[in-house]
Design a protein around this nucleic acid. Structure first.
Lengths: 183, 183
DNA sequence: CTTGCCTATGCAACTTGTTGCATAGCAGGA
DNA sequence: TCCTGCTATGCAACAAGTTGCATAGGCAAG
């Protein structure tokens, strides 16, 4: 039940419509929390009835009108309470690891297919790392005295960068291991 | 829909009852896929009607009888087909990252609480890393010429170890960053 | 001898997340 | 002109995962 809280953080950083939130969940926020627009709209309505967020109608020219959402005091209070609660142990779902262990029960052709798949997966993560590094250069160019918000956003981004580097190194290890099985 | 496939891999590695599977999902398999016993029992029954697994009744003395499940040929075929399919992009849900960005909107007391929470989280991951390393020493003591199954299990375990090391380094970074906000 | 824990399986209700589809106006290119 | 794509919001059906509870015998500690 943390999508509510991820939305609260996003709205505190910058009020937005459901559509804009969805796009941010596809980009920067999507690094650590994913959600579809359908889910976001549904949760926003629930949060509205709970008094966590308020909407402001924005009429637009040349494009559809929208509702700009902001975090309400009750939402801020809910966020504070949540920050004090213990972090829930994460539910790990790492499909690739299952496939790698499953490769022990595949024939050489099946393992060859997995090698191709791992290479594609590796390329995706290499591209992701490049995007993170470009974002870091763009958004955090100087090291000196950032405000709290920027410092915290930066440390989360550094986590994403460290994760991608670790994944790339591990995937190289996986590829060496897979290729060694059939020479 | 990969729980089915994780169960197939687990049963190919070693046939087991639902209860034993659940315990393995709490330990070794739980590194990359989590599931409760309720979910495992439910999915096993669906897999049975699909002909993916077969059960064998095992009468026991001094403890309840059990059903030992094995992967059937149709299950093996389904696994092979799945190995050829592209890896689905993972749905990221990293609660701690949300909390860290949320800390920008908390007062110093709230941030102090988060520091305590991150320290606890760090201790958990340090213990996890120790368990992985102990498991590695126990299960993969020699480097020379392992069979395919051991080699693949080992490379997945190395992934877990690399992940935990990365997490610990990042959490140190997080703690430094959080503490610097309020001196 | 009672309390709690382990083995072993399962039901039912609920929450969360996914997928497919719908609407509707505007902009830009072939 | 038609087709595609973007902004903007939403419904409905479904799949997946969680939580609470139930049963039932045995075993060990206090």
């Amino acid at each position: 039940m943390a999508l509510e809280h991820a939305i609260l953080v996003a709205l505190l950083e910058q009020p937005a419509s459901g559509y804009e939130l969805a796009r941010r969940f596809d980009r920067s926020i999507g690094r650590f929390w994913t959600a579809t627009h359908q889910q976001i709209y549904r949760v926003l309505r629930r949060m509205e009835t709970d008094g966590w967020v308020t909407a402001e109608q924005v009429d637009q020219e040349g494009r559809p009108d929208k509702r700009r959402w902001s975090a309400a005091p009750a939402g801020r209070a809910a966020l504070t309470e949540w920050l004090h609660a213990p972090v829930q142990p994460e539910a790990v779902r790492h499909e690739l690891a299952v496939k790698i262990r499953g490769a022990a029960f595949a024939d050489p052709a099946g393992r060859a297919a997995l090698v191709v798949e791992v290479e594609r997966y590796r390329a995706d993560h290499e591209a992701l790392l490049a995007r993170y590094l470009a974002g870091e250069r763009r958004d955090f160019p100087d090291v000196a005295a950032p405000d709290a918000r920027a410092a915290l956003q930066h440390v989360v981004l550094r986590g994403g960068i460290a994760y991608e580097r670790m994944v790339l190194a591990w995937l190289d290890d996986v590829l060496v291991t897979l290729r060694a099985l059939d020479h």
